[in-house]
């Protein structure tokens, strides 16, 4: 039987996150071809009740201590290292999310394990896994194998099916202790999302602007289009980072997840971190000067051209129509 697969359960503010079930699903699928048992590791304070939801694993290792409330990446990676040592785990799955980023690399660096980042797919041949990683913002994929049986895999959120990692039953729970020095990084408080002027998650129509909008002045074009369509303007990260729109308007991995009936993307390349937040939109129409922009791959309609030429014409025609 192969070494166990250890899945590091991710949770925030008392709830397991979706990626935890995605990782468990990926581990179950791999276990089916290698025969490895699946173990979930839950690290935190007062997190024991969450263990009941981890039934897709064969067992749950629980490290529950008061000083592990909102633990640092270092504490969690130490816990994972010790748990893996104890159970002889081979592969360790961590989430490639903002919440967990850093944990996998700390673990790999300290335990001298190989690490595969950005993993989107796992293929198995002759009992050995090949990890397919997405590099360069999704422009290239690389197939990677590990030389030995042990290593850390950081799984891309949204790449694996969460349903495969949910189970009605509960798995046996084993409590573990953690030998750790006092935390070097201390949690202070949560900073709640700014409540913006508009709640973009509740809009039927969103006009999204990306770096292709080029200047703050050009935002007026998007505002006007949104106005005739009775929608609101949202943006990709670079536009928010420029300070042109408030954080409450950011769509994507670190921003909001939206599912409007209509999403018009203006000058957005379609990076995976942006897709994460808008892929459930009903109808997507994209404007981009680059015929090969990835945004066109997932949109229903595309316009290859300068948004500065195309958007004003559309707004004018819509206005004329409604008056």
């Amino acid at each position: 039987m192969a070494n166990p697969i250890l899945v590091l359960a991710e949770h925030l503010r008392g709830s397991l996150t979706e990626v935890t079930f995605e990782m468990l699903g990926a581990a179950r699928a791999l276990a089916q071809s290698t025969g490895a048992p699946v173990q979930a590791l839950l690290v935190g304070s007062g997190v024991e009740p969450l263990a009941a939801q981890l039934g897709a694993a064969d067992s749950v290792l629980l490290v529950d201590r008061p000083d592990l409330a909102n633990p640092s990446s270092e504490q969690v990676s130490l816990a994972a290292e010790q748990a893996a040592g104890k159970t002889g785990a081979g592969l360790i799955f961590v989430a490639g999310t903002n919440v967990s980023t850093g944990i996998g690399t700390l673990l790999a660096a300290r335990a001298k394990l190989p690490l595969v980042n950005f993993c989107r797919e796992i293929k198995v041949a002759d009992g050995r896994p090949t990890f397919v990683s997405q590099l360069f913002g999704g422009k290239v994929f690389a197939e990677v194998r590990m030389a030995g049986d042990r290593g850390v895999v950081s799984l891309y959120p949204g790449a694996f099916r969460a349903e495969a990692g949910r189970a009605d039953k509960a798995a046996p729970v084993e409590r573990c202790d953690l030998q750790a020095p006092p935390a070097k990084v201390r949690f202070r408080r949560f900073v709640e999302p700014e409540t913006g002027d508009v709640d973009i998650t509740r809009q039927d129509v969103l006009v999204a602007v990306g770096r292709g909008i080029q200047s703050q002045d050009n935002l007026a074009l998007a505002e006007e289009l949104a106005q005739v369509l009775k929608g609101a303007v949202c943006a990709s990260r670079p536009v928010i980072d420029q300070g042109w729109l408030p954080l409450s308007r950011q769509v994507g991995k670190s921003g909001m997840s939206v599912k409007p009936r209509l999403y018009i993307a203006l000058g957005i390349s379609g990076a995976p971190e942006h897709w994460e937040g808008m892929q459930s939109s009903r109808l997507i129409i994209a404007f981009n000067t680059d015929p090969k922009a990835p945004i066109f791959d997932g949109s229903q309609y595309g316009v290859c051209g300068d948004l500065l030429d195309y958007v004003p014409a559309l707004t004018e025609k819509l206005k004329a129509r409604s008056s």
Partner: peptide, 19 residues
Amino acid sequence: GLELGRMAKPEAAGHAQML
């Protein structure tokens, strides 16, 4: 510890109808 195999460009799952 790592063996890098093949690199490739992703195949698009679909494509927009271009106007």
